[in-house]
Amino acid sequence: MGLLYYLHTDQTLGIKVKRSDLIGLMMRRNELASEILKASFSQSFPAMLQSPSSCTGCRHLTSCTIYHKVHGGNTATSGLGDLFDNLVNHLSVAHHNFLKHWDRLIDLEARTSQVKKKEILLPLHYNSGSKSSAPSFYVLDMKNEHSVDSSGKSKRYIYNFVREKMQPEAAGHSEPQAESLDFNLKSGDCVVLSTQSGRIAVANGSIRDISRSHITVLPD
């Protein structure tokens, strides 16, 4: 069994899963991922479908046509004829400039947040002499891996991380360096849990308890 969500009726129905349906969904998903990747590099939108039958019932029709118009599109390139004109003819040059301006600011803000997110996953440099928000030398306590929090409506696991002694060669130094525990984290802060190799984010959570020897995290 699978779940199918209808956008127009806001309903979720149980359906029997067919291989042909899964293949179609995966193909569409891959097409979407490909277009998103292209847009992230080119900073441009893909061409419109130019299909009145598909576009008329799309919930993104208004925003799609507006962006298409603002970024140089017209009735011919939209493929929607009078429908396109009815949706965007009220826009003036001032509207175009306003949208482009704020769209650029939102894009810059998104890039900044991505940079900050990557910095969270960077390892702590022992000889930098600066504070770090990423105590990467804390690892999951395998002896006391997790406990259960039953205070809320649903039970959640609480994970315990303990301080790990890093070898000098692992940190890229020929001699032992003084380890610093001066990082800007406190109880209640939101954190990202990642793998030690590859810096792959695996979960989000919040700090429940923190000390020089351990950090207790409650995943979201």
Rank of each mutant, 00 (worst) to 15 (best):
C64V: 04
R29M: 15
A47Y: 01
A110G: 08
F98G: 04
A94W: 02
S54T: 00
S42F: 03
D107G: 05
L32F: 07
Y67D: 12
R104K: 05
G81V: 03
L87H: 00
S34R: 05
S51Y: 01
E31C: 03
Q43W: 12
P46M: 11
K100T: 05
I36A: 13
H60R: 09
T62A: 14
L37F: 09
P46T: 06
C64Q: 10
E109T: 08
L108I: 09
A47G: 05
L80W: 06
A94R: 03
H68Q: 08
W102Q: 08
H96A: 14
K38R: 15
V93K: 00
N86L: 15
D85M: 11
D107L: 13
D103Q: 09
H101A: 03
S78L: 05
S54Q: 14
I66S: 03
S34H: 07
K69W: 03
L37Y: 09
S53L: 07
S51T: 04
S92R: 06
Q50C: 10
H101S: 04
E31K: 03
R29K: 11
F98H: 09
F84W: 12
E109K: 14
Q43Y: 15
I66M: 13
D82M: 14
N97M: 09
G72D: 08
I106W: 00
Q50A: 09
D82S: 15
N89F: 06
N74L: 06
L61S: 01
G72M: 07
H95T: 07
T65I: 10
F84H: 14
T112C: 07
V70K: 09
